[in-house]
Nucleic acid binder design. Structure first.
Lengths: 250, 250
DNA sequence: GTGCGGGAGATCTCTAGAGAAATCAATGAT
DNA sequence: ATCATTGATTTCTCTAGAGATCTCCCGCAC
């Protein structure tokens, strides 16, 4: 008997989690906001407490939310540890030099297989970083040999660039950086933070990662002259597929 | 009323998880072995199914185990995926600029609590990188609040520097780099590769890492004028304690 | 005001049970 | 021998309920 691929609906807890995640990532729920609690979810969907808990556990596990016992579950988005303008504890300084950002995909070509661009109100975090209330958001997924290896989310201040400018790669002629240069906001300074962590189940699915593979998360802020932030870019890389390389001169 | 700190026993599910984790990390249970299933745990401890599941969920979450529906839960330890010798594709170039290497330990001071220096024959990899058959090796362990967070291994060509030069930090007066400068081999160019991977059990023990925390591995090569390699430095960082930051100008 | 106590409300832990879904091995028919 | 089916086993999902623990705020006493 030929097995037709049956379309299984995701379980209840997952559907609820997906819905809450959408609200977080789309900005409806912002950093620090309180998520609906166990009781609220139970009542809203008419389900048992354990199931409601399971839905919240997904987001907690993904690092998007933090539970506070006796209080509630709260949205927790990326927060840079030190921002531009604040003091920085520099352990080593290499002086003037050339810097190359290099992501190693072992020589295989990569393709961009998903692009989504939208103009949305900035989340609290992005608004603080980019000093802008409305932003263009560009989401991309990169693949090597048909296997997705990187997710990238770029934010541009909506009052600086038009949407068409952000459809192209940052660098290169006609790209977002060239457009910014036309407007007098050519990026001149970059800050990158590199973290590593375990993927959340949803990320592992999106990137098709084998269990036990960590993620590299690179958060980059590009500044134009005068310290005007013009881009916030968060890249999520499959650590098994990527090696970052930084080159610089003393 | 003065509240004495009450000693709360960990919940059942956590105690079971701790026990299973010990067996995995100590080697009693090995990669691929089957963990006791829900039914076995229920029977052994006389608890409900949900509690047994919760115990297993801890290990699954930590990446130490993988569940296979209809089959069981299996130990899944880290397995390195690829090593050296891979080609590299440069994706973006930032041009001339300043670069700062910054490891963020959240503002807390770190201490060096282990130093070992020895002159040894170079491994094949190090011999290739440093173009030298014999090297000085310096091993260090850095701690924050008494908790080890970083292992660092530096290699210097033995025919360039004496052993005394490498006892001090690289940068700073009298440090290894200053000594190299005296000899006409001041480092002028640096290459850093950043990887992330899961720690080996032994590394997790050395760094006192909570399970499920990945490692950041930074491999740096310092070159003197003329492209002469003068140091190969591999740093292994607890990803939970470190954020790397790179700053550079266009 | 200030501080303390109590209560409402929230998460956390756990029990008991049951059907669905996937795996795997054994059985049976061809 | 090969293939399909069946049955046992296992994880997955969910229901219903309850006590413990912690937080936060309100009101009361000082």
């Amino acid at each position: 008997m030929t097995e037709l691929p049956v379309h299984h609906e995701p379980p209840i807890y997952r559907r609820i989690a997906d819905r809450l995640r959408d609200e977080i990532l789309s900005g409806v729920l912002r950093d620090g906001d309180r998520l609906p609690g166990e009781n609220a979810i139970m009542a809203e969907y008419g389900i048992a407490r354990a199931t409601a808990r399971q839905a919240l556990a997904v987001l907690i596990n993904e690092g998007l939310a933090v539970p506070r016992r006796g209080s509630g579950v709260y949205v927790r988005l990326f927060r840079p540890i030190r921002r531009h303008g604040s003091r920085r504890l520099s352990r080593e300084q290499w002086g003037q030099g050339r810097a190359i950002w290099d992501s190693d995909t072992r020589g295989r070509p990569y393709t961009v297989d998903e692009v989504r661009i939208e103009r949305v109100p900035a989340s609290e975090q992005v608004a603080r970083l980019l000093d802008s209330d409305e932003v263009w958001v560009r989401r991309r997924r990169y693949s090597v040999d048909g296997r997705p290896v990187q997710l990238a989310v770029s934010h541009f201040p909506a009052d600086l660039v038009e949407g068409t400018a952000v459809t192209l790669p940052d660098t290169g002629p006609g790209g977002a950086y060239a457009r910014l240069g036309d407007l007098g906001y050519s990026p001149v300074h970059f800050t990158e933070e590199v973290r590593a962590r375990m993927p959340q189940p949803s990320e592992a699915r999106l990137l098709d990662m084998p269990p036990g593979t960590p993620l590299i998360v690179v958060a980059r802020i590009a500044y134009a002259g005068g310290g005007v932030p013009v881009e916030f870019n968060e890249m999520t890389l499959d650590a098994a597929s990527y090696v970052l390389q930084y080159d610089f001169d003393a």
